[in-house]
Amino acid sequence: MSAASTPRRRPLLSSRRLATIASHAYIWLCLILFVLPFLALLSQSLGQRGGASGLGNYAAVFGSFGDNLFWSFKITGLTLLIDLAACLPAAYALVRYPVPGKRLLFSLLQLPLYVPGAVIGLSLLLTYTFVYKIDSMWGLVLAMAVGSFPLMMTPIVVAMKDLPVMFEEASECLGATKWQTYRRIVFPLIGPGVSAGLLLCFIIVFNEYLVTLFVHPPALETAPLKVFNLVRTNGLAPTTAALAVTMQLISFLAVIVFFRIFGTRHFKGTYIL
């Protein structure tokens, strides 16, 4: 029994502890990378240029950018309503009713997620111009809706699948009509799933610039599009950074509020882990 081969004390830095430390370090390194672009924008937006003080950059957000923000909220709100109207019944039917070719249909409805934004933009621009003759705000709203509704659909479908049919059956046996069952039983119970869908769609639509670039009506400039245009024409200005930071903070706030209320598990099947 040589003493060397059997250490008597626990080593200060065992390989296991080293691995643990390295793991955490790695996670934090990656997280910093994620947030780095945001932090850079944040520090720039607070920076000074030509005598204006740091926070002065944000004055513009509520001044000349106010319009853009207003449009963003309006477009996003309308889009979410259309998404809800399209997804709630569709998800219900897909889960509860016998639909022939269910999987294919679901895939076809999910496909907008995978079409590159520039292609959606171009195809809508051309059809709006030559076929549908739409040049109002609604063209943009519909474009946002078609690109985002699959994001809404997934968490609702998951929530519907996780809801045992039993509750609906019990309700019907107790004398409730289909509509009463839907409103008083199904909707409240899939609420968190619906909210997850709303959140996902909100952060995507609220920050969408690419499809918007193609189909926005001439007089309408949403906030992300404004950021895009300013970056291209005006270079890397602190005021632009301030607007970008504001947009991200609003989105982040929405995420945090949601996590606080509902937790994270309702994103199952979507692209937030």
């Binding site: 924008l41 952060i203 995507i204 970008a244 982040f252 882990l273």
Partner: peptide
Amino acid sequence: ALMVFPMFGALY
């Protein structure tokens, strides 16, 4: 929560 930052958009 931190991981959602990149999802806000390639633009930012």
